[in-house]
Design a protein around this nucleic acid. Structure first.
Length: 219
DNA sequence: GCGACAG
DNA sequence: ATCTTGTCGC
């Protein structure tokens, strides 16, 4: 199918692809490299997509790619992926180090139709993925104050993710499965990626590059 | 009907 | 997301 241009087509695509999401980890799932994906905006249609690949253990950058593009799809909560995916896929294509895990800046299963950006990226590429959002779409009880504390994130009476405290006393991040990984493993990876700050290093680096590109658009 | 609503 | 300086605090 070609990329949707209308809300109805986009929703239909999500309903169709949601059935392909896998919420368990392969027994031999090894995560040595992790990709952080993010998009920055300049005006309403200019976008800069970034894909940064980190060594999951050493937390050092192995490769990073910035791609500039434009978008037709306006921002609509729930249809976020249709605005950001095209650029992100282009950036992901140009990276020279294959990532074992994709970390999306947004939701995975914690989505109205259980198919957020992280799920879409995962199903499309076949690469394990997770969503790490700064804001929740569902309901949750505040997790404990200490780093590593977590609580269920629910929507329509079902657990769709977790509110995870990555640093003592900071606002939690919202983790949900994207594809080919289980929620426990997803949270463990986020904690490993965020040893010092609230957000994973992958997200922080991608975000920096994203704004850097957006502010120097045209040079 | 009214408000809320990832980035 | 974006428009935007200084400032409070560890």
């Amino acid at each position: 199918m070609e990329w949707p241009r209308t809300v109805d087509d986009a929703v239909a695509m999500q309903e169709r692809l949601r059935t392909q999401v896998i919420t368990t980890s392969a027994p031999d799932l090894r995560i040595d490299t992790v990709a952080g994906l993010d998009v920055g905006y300049r005006g309403n249609d200019a976008v800069a997509g970034v894909c940064v690949v980190f060594d999951a253990k050493a937390l050092v950058v192995l490769d990073e790619v910035v791609v500039e593009d434009t978008t037709d799809f306006q921002y609509i909560a729930g249809l976020f992926a249709f605005r950001e995916m095209p650029v992100l896929l282009r950036a992901l294509d140009r990276v020279t180090v294959a990532p074992d895990l994709l970390v999306a800046d947004g939701q995975g299963l914690a989505h109205p139709r259980r198919f957020g950006l992280a799920c879409h990226l995962g199903v499309h590429t076949g690469i394990p993925s997770i969503g790490v959002a700064k804001n929740a779409m569902g309901a949750f009880d505040p997790p404990g104050h200490a780093r590593g504390s977590m609580s269920d994130l629910s929507m329509d009476g079902e657990v769709v993710g977790r509110a995870l405290r990555t640093q003592d006393g900071v606002k939690p991040v919202f983790v949900s499965v994207g594809h080919k990984i289980d929620l426990d493993r997803a949270c463990a990876e986020v904690l490993r990626l965020a040893p010092r700050y609230r957000l994973p290093e992958t997200t922080r680096r991608a975000d920096t590059l994203t704004k850097q590109a957006a502010s120097s658009a045209g040079s």
